[in-house]
């Protein structure tokens, strides 16, 4: 087989016509615009329905699998590793540990935020290691956040809770009483 350097250089040419943002905003090119009305309402299912109802009570609930011994959070009705139904429900604490965090300067549409948001993955106390959720941190300066920081959920007042993950307003720094 003939290997070695060749005169051929690939890709031999680059096709495509670049546009600037103004070409679009000033409609210098032909544009078709559409705003589809796509509406879905997902049934939450057994695991998430229970989870959301417990949020209304100010509680975090997990499921357990006796085969692998995991306390699974967020809860599901099956253990995905053992592939069997879960063996019961257990409450976990509303305290936890920051596994990793980020300071976000942009919103979901990549527009700048007025005030940066601190987002974190929090491993929840009482669940198996690494069993966490993503949420927001509050009552803390961005530069004070560190991996391993202990945090506690700050709940909305009971009458404002609606059974959504936002029933927890944010998580704030917290010191264990035994420390």
């Amino acid at each position: 087989m003939a290997v070695g350097r060749k005169k051929i250089s690939c890709p031999p040419y680059a096709e495509g016509t670049a546009l600037s943002e103004r070409d679009i905003s000033e409609r210098r090119v032909t544009i078709f615009e559409d705003h589809p009305n796509l509406v879905y309402s997902w049934t939450a299912g057994q695991a998430m329905s229970r989870f959301l109802n417990e949020l209304k009570n100010g509680k975090l609930i997990a499921t357990k699998c006796e085969k692998c011994g995991r306390i699974i959070f967020p809860p599901r009705i099956y253990c995905e590793l053992c592939y069997k139904p879960i063996d019961g429900w257990v409450y976990v604490k509303d305290t936890g540990t920051v596994q990793t965090f980020s300071i976000s300067y942009i919103d979901p549409d990549a527009r700048p935020l007025e005030k940066p948001v601190i987002v974190a993955v929090i491993a929840v106390d009482g669940a198996s290691p690494n069993m966490g959720i993503m949420h927001i941190l509050g009552e803390v300066e961005p530069e004070k956040v560190y991996i391993g920081m202990r945090v506690k959920a700050v709940w909305k007042p009971e009458n404002e809770r609606e059974g959504a993950i936002t029933d927890i307003k944010y998580w704030k720094p917290w010191r264990d009483e035994n420390d």
Binding site: A44, A47, M48, R76
Partner: peptide, 12 residues
């Protein structure tokens, strides 16, 4: 319709 189960749960 299947109001009691999520799509994940019917797959399961």
């Amino acid at each position: 319709n299947t109001p009691d189960l999520s799509w994940k749960e019917i797959m399961y």
